[in-house]
Simulated scan of single mutants.
Amino acid sequence: MALTRAEGVAMNSVLPHVALSMHAHDRHGLERTDEEWLDAKWKDPSTRVLVLSGTRIRPVDRQIVWVTPQEAPADGLRILLGTREEATHFAVVVEPDKAPGDKQEWHVLRALLPALENDVLTAPLVMHAIGMAEWHWATRFCPRCGGPLDARQAGHVLECLDCGKQQFPRSDPAVIMIVTFGEPGSADEMCLLGRSPAWPEGRFSTLAGFVEPGETMEDAVRREVAEETGVEVGEVTYFGSQPWPLPASLMVGFSARATSTDIQVDESEIAEARWFTREQIRDEATSGAVVLPGGISISRSLIEAWYGGSLPGHW
């Protein structure tokens, strides 16, 4: 069934949320050096702790579990995350060889994304915890002198014990974009989606890539689309952002208007790219011929914002 122009305009006016950006927690940046405050919060019976083995989490019945401070390992690195719904949350990161239980019980974040889709209230806290754990795991020595590092400010600063240089958590900016062509809201308007060579047939997503030094995000959108698919882009409009600590990215979403439609994939990062009308993406998602990203990803939000509502199926 074809969409009318009026239906397309109405659908395109709907803006689905970006799941991981909806429920920000109070990070208590000013309290990170207040040992008395930190100690009181750690002793508070309402406080909850996420335990990590290196950068891995141990779920229970496929759900992410928060424990009390008394149940958390005593010899791990304690990281303040912040307050959500009047409860303070910490992460405790232990070395993998000291983690309780079997090593196979601990899973990487990507394997637990379905659990986060069902718990978007605490998902930003989990992303914060994983991002910090990834940073501590990768930053073992001072990049200036090679000296040992000591955690400060509730885990959010690493200070060299030799030269005193401080290191701070990093986030690498990456752009992710829904590329469209045609009259906005019309039945003939199309969006461009691509498939990675590592993905099975039928799995499609929005295009994405890292911002290079000295480059604006808008120019990164234009460059990445041209490099991966050969499509030229003109107007670029900000959509929203989302943390993605796999391992340390900040995904910045954009809507981009194409000025050409000819596709020439690079066959390196993109194996296949296609233009979809709203009717095509709805019908193929319904039949399972096309499988779209999960609901917690900003890619899904970009696609559904353009489409104008929810779509069936996900990875």
Results as ranks from 00 to 15, higher is better:
L38Y: 12
L20T: 11
A208L: 15
L207N: 09
G131W: 03
S268L: 15
W315Y: 04
V14T: 11
H25R: 12
E159C: 05
P293K: 05
G155F: 10
I64K: 12
D102T: 00
I263T: 02
V60T: 06
V65C: 06
A226I: 09
E269I: 10
A19I: 11
L302I: 12
E212K: 15
L109K: 03
R257V: 14
L52T: 04
V108Y: 01
N12W: 07
L77C: 09
M11Y: 09
D119F: 08
E95P: 05
S205Y: 03
I263R: 08
G194V: 13
E35W: 06
R78Y: 10
A87M: 14
V18A: 06
S310A: 15
A123G: 04
V211P: 02
H128C: 12
R84P: 00
S301H: 03
T259D: 02
R56G: 00
R48P: 07
R223F: 01
R32Q: 09
A154M: 11
E304I: 11
W244L: 10
D61F: 10
C160D: 00
D262G: 04
E227M: 07
E227Q: 14
L302A: 04
P247E: 05
G101M: 03
K103I: 01
V231G: 03
T139Q: 09
V233Y: 07
A226K: 15
V231A: 04
F90V: 14
V236H: 05
L109E: 00
R170V: 15
T4D: 03
C142V: 06
I270N: 02
I178R: 11
L80C: 12
S241G: 14
L207R: 10
G294F: 02
T83W: 01
V126F: 01
T88A: 12
G82V: 13
E215P: 03
M22C: 13
W135C: 01
F210A: 14
V236G: 04
L302F: 06
L50W: 07
E71N: 14
G194D: 03
R62Y: 10
P100Y: 02
P184L: 04
M1E: 05
C163S: 02
G308Q: 07
E95N: 07
G8Y: 04
G76V: 14
R27N: 11
T180P: 06
G230I: 14
V290K: 08
K41M: 14
R170T: 14
A19H: 03
S186Q: 07
Q104C: 00
E71Q: 15
V67H: 11
P45V: 08
E31L: 13
I296S: 01
T139I: 02
T55I: 08
I79V: 15
E227K: 12
I270H: 04
W275N: 06
